[in-house]
Design a protein around this nucleic acid. Structure first.
Lengths: 138, 138
DNA sequence: TCATACATTAGTATCACACTAATGTTATTA
DNA sequence: TAATAACATTAGTGTGATACTAATGTATGA
């Protein structure tokens, strides 16, 4: 399915989250490392980066890649959804590992607004099952 | 993202649900009508049908299309997830229309097992917000 | 300076999605 | 019955995402 404008693919999602979680604040991440994290070859990772650049979510030069402000916002939003859904699943009886895997399949599709409402319904937990904080604002 | 084996795309999902909901019991649906429901041209609908056939989910001859046993099971499973997630969203305060739209974006991705556990957590409602029954067994 | 590590480009391939144009088939109707 | 309308089907094109190999460029450290 062709992505609608502003929509991201699973790979792009994985790349955003990798950058968000593995690159120290304001420090670029090497293309090579991104490729390793995504378990693809560097040219493949590069093409993902190029798509993120087109969408204004990342910037790169000489294999040094950083998220833009916009990219960070999107990543945060995905993490909000991810951790909320993960918490819901765990509260429902799904194992932590399954919950994490399954959450990654939908966290870039579910609207953040829906996640915020679900979060309230399940009792406003402050952290996901792994203990990571659930982002507050956008 | 290439679909893993046994995985279906959004279009295939829409097509399965269309067949499940619009074709009378054991009666085939016309390709033309499927195209209208999916809001695509007949050749496009045909290519979707062909993919479903390859996966053993549908059969067709001369534009007469029916779900296989397997296709019906998959459709039922998607509806279970759809209505469960829809119920969750509505209980959380999402409008009925948004809930339905948003549920269709993820109901073919979320595992039925997860949905069954969520269903229990939200109080085992018997119907979705539209009043349609939530399928029991698989 | 030379080697190595890495980025980048070029070229190929597959799959999902979607279209138009052309052609077949069938069934109704004038 | 012959013509037409309705629909299915095939062929051909195009785009975007994903992924690879092979070739080439570049820069840094030994």
């Amino acid at each position: 399915m062709k992505n609608r404008p502003n929509e991201i693919s699973k790979r792009e999602r994985d790349c955003l989250i990798t950058l968000e979680e593995e690159s120290p604040r304001d420090f670029p991440m090497r293309l090579h490392q991104i490729a390793v994290s995504l378990k693809v070859k560097p040219p493949t990772a590069l093409s993902v980066i190029r798509r993120l650049e087109k969408k204004g979510l990342a910037e790169s030069r000489d294999g040094m890649v950083i998220l833009t402000e916009s990219g960070m916002r999107v990543a945060k939003s995905i993490l909000l959804v991810h951790r909320t859904y993960e918490a819901l699943l765990c509260q429902s009886g799904v194992s932590e590992n399954s919950a994490c895997y399954d959450a990654a399949e939908v966290d870039y599709i579910i609207p953040a607004d829906d996640a915020r409402l679900i979060l309230k319904k399940i009792g406003n937990p402050k952290v996901c099952p792994h203990g990571k904080p659930i982002p507050e604002e956008e």
